[in-house]
């Protein structure tokens, strides 16, 4: 479903991604873990081209995103229209929810359905209501984001992305901005999504979640994937020193 081959990116002098290879198959759940500054968020944002990548290829369902191959072998930037078309099929959930504060919960979910999918007001409202029920927030449909807790806001954000019926979902540290007691409700929604067979690429610090829900885990540091494999492999049998060091501090803090 997602193919990353040799993806590289620099911000000026600073090389953030150095030749990343990663693939996510249909209905697979892959978690990206690693220290801060490792480039994991940047990598995720290259998948829907919110960040442009300088080298390599990112393919969604076989199709290159962000650029178009020219017959001469070179490539040019993809047209805005085609990029938008591709983005419709990719759902994204942000660390800081990014709900639109001047619209209600149901307004937030219905807006992309109307502007991007072209649904009528009635159709959009119906689907939005269904989505909000799915994440357990039907009762809060007419609340404004400011009146919702962090966990509720993030669930609305997930509903908003889901309503578009995307082929895959990207999650950028979805629980990092939440109070500890609100994390669970969001992970629960993500867990059921995974169970339904959604293709998911998740950047997260929630090791427990990654361990139990992910099909594969990739550890990224310094812009490169250091190790990847099943949760069992990465957490218990990894030979890479940086991976073990990273997990050690995690274990220390979490097993008293």
């Amino acid at each position: 479903m997602i193919e990353l081959a040799g993806v590289g990116k620099s911000f000026g002098e600073h090389e953030v991604l150095r030749g990343v290879d990663l693939s996510v198959g249909r209905s697979e759940v892959v978690c990206l873990i690693g220290p801060s500054g490792s480039g994991k968020s940047t990598l995720l944002r290259c998948v829907n081209f919110l960040e442009s990548y300088d080298m390599g290829e990112v393919r969604i369902d076989g199709r290159l995103i962000g650029y178009e191959d020219l017959p001469s072998g070179a490539r040019k930037p993809m047209s805005a229209r085609r990029l938008r078309e591709m983005r419709r099929e990719i759902g994204m959930v942000f660390q800081h929810f990014n709900l639109w504060p001047h619209m209600t919960a149901i307004g937030n979910v219905a807006e992309p359905l109307r502007r991007v999918r072209g649904l009528t007001a009635g159709q959009a409202a119906d689907r939005a209501t269904a989505m909000l029920s799915k994440v357990g927030l039907a009762a809060k449909a007419h609340a404004y984001p400011a009146q919702l807790s962090g966990g509720q806001q993030q669930r609305v954000a997930i509903a908003r992305a889901l309503a578009m019926q995307p082929q895959l979902m990207l999650f950028d540290e979805p629980t990092s901005a939440l109070d500890p007691e609100l994390v669970g409700e969001v992970l629960e929604v993500m867990r059921s999504l995974a169970a339904e067979g959604m293709t998911m690429l998740i950047v997260t610090h929630e090791m427990g979640f990654a361990a139990h829900v992910a099909d594969r885990i990739a550890f990224i540091d310094g812009g490169r994937i250091i190790d990847e494999g099943s949760p069992r492999h990465v957490f218990h049998h990894s030979q890479e020193p940086r991976v073990r060091q990273f997990l050690e501090t995690y274990h220390d803090r979490n097993s008293f």
Binding site: N48, R88, M92
Partner: peptide, 13 residues
């Protein structure tokens, strides 16, 4: 982040 979310959803400028 708000315009980013819109862009990610495929909104036109």
């Amino acid at each position: 982040g708000q315009s980013e979310a819109a862009v990610a959803l495929g909104f036109a400028g």
